[in-house]
Design a protein around this nucleic acid. Structure first.
Length: 297
DNA sequence: CTCCAGGGATGAT
DNA sequence: ATCATCCATGGA
């Protein structure tokens, strides 16, 4: 795309590439010097050169989607002061929690159960290609995220062809609740955190973790603290290095009080930092495993 | 080949 | 309330 067709958006304290690659959204693709993707039913191109963004596809929409109005300095200043949190905050400078469409976010995280980020991207892509609408931008063909009505008109068999596996049944059940109007995701915006979480968890395929992801990434509930295998590993290794009887309830109680009003942001920084700095440990030999496990006793 | 992944539903204690 | 087991699929 030639530069004169792009509009400039100021974007201080924002890292576009890190935000899109931090495991909160899964459909953006590299294109030229930037990324193409959809925001709702709009196709968008975004690239970052220095601080500002250069975009085509609707400046106000993009400004809101990437949450450029979030006071990132204040948010980071609200984090607890400890070495683990400080390292993650330094590493994730410019990473923002974006405002995703609710339906799209809910479906994506129902599909995320026991899946690697790379595979969630594949599932998202297949759902879009099969059920969404094509859009063309910057020489790329991309697809909108399909509506609840469109997915409700499909079958479990069709969904399984998108590599959904056992998640297909839950996704279809939740889709039908939304398509029939039994659940109104937009109206749920007015609910306080506790009630919103409870309502989300009534949906098939939505447990504590997925509910918190949807609250954080689509309902802008910045306290919501999803605990997945990565975060649980960080908490156990870094914050409770020698604790026994550390169950889910105990972890939840700790995270809710320790990480504060922007716990969701803190969680995302810990998550991304842990994933990006993971050391590809050489697989332990049988004898090493024996020494390790026996020394724990 | 094996191991594991941004977990949830279910049933047994 | 808390815990064990099963669930599909594919990347590493």
């Amino acid at each position: 795309m030639s530069a004169q067709h792009l509009r400039k958006i100021p974007a201080q304290d924002f890292d576009l590439a890190m935000t899109l690659n931090s495991g909160q959204v899964f459909h953006w693709e590299k294109a030229g010097d930037g990324f193409v993707g959809t925001i709702g039913d709009r196709a968008v191109y975004v690239e970052q050169c220095g601080d500002p963004l250069f975009v085509s596809g609707g400046e106000e929409l993009i400004h809101s989607y990437f949450a450029l109005d979030h006071p990132l300095t204040e948010i980071c200043a609200s984090f607890p002061e400890d070495p683990v949190m400080n390292a993650a905050t330094e590493f994730c400078r410019g990473l923002r929690i974006i405002r995703q469409p609710k339906w799209e976010c809910l479906v994506t995280f129902i599909c995320s159960a026991m899946k690697q980020v790379a595979h969630i991207r594949q599932i998202s892509q297949k759902l879009r290609e099969r059920f969404g609408e094509a859009r063309e931008i910057n020489g790329c063909v991309i697809y909108t995220f399909p509506s609840a009505d469109r997915i409700a008109a499909s079958s479990e068999k069709e969904l399984r062809q998108c590599a959904l596996g056992y998640r297909a049944k839950n996704l279809l059940a939740t889709t039908r609740l939304v398509a029939r109007g039994d659940v109104d995701l937009e109206k749920m915006s007015v609910l306080p955190d506790v009630d919103l979480r409870a309502r989300l968890r009534e949906l098939p395929g939505v447990g504590a973790k997925v509910a918190n992801c949807v609250m954080l990434f689509a309902y802008e509930r910045l306290r919501a603290f999803p605990i997945d295998v990565w975060i649980e590993r960080v908490l156990r290794e870094k914050y409770f290095p020698r604790a026994r009887k550390l169950n889910a309830g105990r972890l939840r109680a700790f995270t809710e009080k320790y990480f504060g009003d922007h716990g969701g942001y803190a969680q995302q920084y810990l998550f991304h930092h842990a994933r990006m700095t993971k050391t590809k440990t050489k697989r332990k030999t049988r004898s090493e495993k024996f020494v390790t496990t026996s020394s724990v006793r």
